[in-house]
């Protein structure tokens, strides 16, 4: 079955109040085109799950700046002072997790399990007494799986069955989120017919993907950010 959708139709499936995972670590892997359409359609009261908040004026920062986000579940927003200010003012609720814990919570949901035991952050303020479990003489922190209604992802290459290949450091959270969300929407600048991939090289098998949105071209959002170039 062909999973091709138009940008507008794919994003129209998202209701206000949805919990949405967004791929990307900084720019690479951020689905800028899907996010732009979500800004345009204007769904509100969203909960976003993303490694970071992108940078001011880019990616998920636009959804936050536009007042569409009530809660951000993330690991690090140090490159986005504007979102830190909004958090401090109480305009958006921000929940921080250790980065590998966020990844593992998502991976766990994607594997159909419910939680795991860890010692990360066990004696820091992010751990509440009720998170602790004594088991066979040792104390662990319980981390619960984290799933979502939707995932928005960018793939360098896809076929219309939803098989995905990522590029460079744009892999990051995307294959984990593809497995953990109930409805997975992927944008790609390179949509091929089945058979265009060597099967062993597929990062995300098509079974996890619901909609594939072909992009005619990549906007400047996907290019080099001049202020990150070392002179």
């Amino acid at each position: 079955m062909k999973k091709n959708r138009t940008l507008e139709n794919a994003i129209a499936a998202i209701p206000s109040g949805a919990v949405i995972m967004v791929g990307g670590f900084g720019n690479p892997g951020t689905p800028f085109s899907l996010i732009s359409e979500l800004v345009r359609q204007g769904q509100t009261d969203l909960t976003l799950i993303k490694n970071d908040a992108n940078e001011a004026g880019h990616g998920v920062s636009r959804l936050i700046e536009n007042g569409q986000v009530k809660k951000l579940i993330t690991t690090h927003i140090g490159l986005n002072k504007g979102v830190i200010d909004r958090m401090n003012r109480g305009d958006v609720e921000v929940q921080f997790h250790p980065q590998g814990m966020l990844a593992e919570k998502i991976r766990t949901a994607g594997a159909g399990s419910f939680g795991f035991l860890t010692d990360i952050g066990i004696d820091s303020e992010i751990t509440r007494p009720e998170d602790l479990l004594d088991w066979q003489g040792k104390t662990y922190k319980v981390e619960m799986a984290l799933s979502a209604d939707f995932a928005l992802l960018h793939a360098a290459h896809a076929d219309w069955l939803g098989n995905l290949v990522y590029q460079g450091s744009a892999i990051n959270f995307s294959p984990l989120m593809a497995m953990a969300a109930n409805h997975v929407i992927v944008e790609t600048p390179d949509l091929g017919a089945p058979g265009c991939f060597i099967p062993e090289q597929v990062h995300t098998p098509g079974a996890f993907v619901d909609s594939v949105v072909p992009l005619a071209s990549l906007t400047s959002d996907y290019g080099i950010l001049e202020h990150h170039v070392r002179r």
Binding site: N27, G100, L176, L225, R230
Partner: peptide, 28 residues
């Protein structure tokens, strides 16, 4: 320079021979 290849601070990096790329769960 590859816009899809940055370090954790957002700076553009290259890959040495023998480099590998993986998801965040593997990284951690």
């Amino acid at each position: 320079m590859d816009p899809f290849l940055i370090d954790a601070a957002g700076a553009y990096v290259s890959l040495r021979e023998g480099a590998s790329l993986f998801d965040s769960a593997v990284s951690f």
